[in-house]
Amino acid sequence: MSSEWPLWEVFIRGQHGLNHRHVGSLHAPDAEMAICNARDVYTRRNEGVSIWVVQSNQITASAPSEKGPLFEPSNSKVYRHPTFFDIPAEVGHM
C-alpha cells in the first residue's frame, strides 16, 4: 500500500460570530486540498463561514490519565465563582 494521505482536523466557524469549533477530521494530501475536502464533507448545508485545518499530528493534547492533577487547582478555588460571595439583598443586583 502506498503512503496514506495525512489526517487533518477540521474547525469551522458557524454563522453567528462564534469561535471556530472542531467538527471532525479527514484525509488530504495537503492543506489546500484539506480545505476543499472540508468544504465538501463538513459544510454541505451552510454550516460555516470559515474553515481552519491543521494536520492531526501537529496537535498536542493533555493526557486523559492526568485529568485529575491537571484540573484540580481550579476545582479547589471556589471563590473564583461569583456565587461564592453573598451580597445583601438590599444592595440589589450586582
Binding site: M1, E4, G24, H27, D40, V41, R44
Partner: peptide, 30 residues
C-alpha cells in the same frame, strides 16, 4: 446526486470515528 454525496460524507465521518480507535482508513478499506 445530493443524497449520494451525503452517503459519501457519512462514510467519511464514520471512517474518521473508527480511526480514533487506532486503525487507519486504508486498513479498513483493505
Amino acid at each position: 446526486l445530493a443524497k449520494v454525496q451525503d452517503e459519501a460524507g457519512h462514510g467519511l465521518y464514520l471512517y474518521s470515528a473508527a480511526e480514533t480507535l487506532g486503525v487507519s482508513r486504508d486498513e479498513l478499506l483493505e
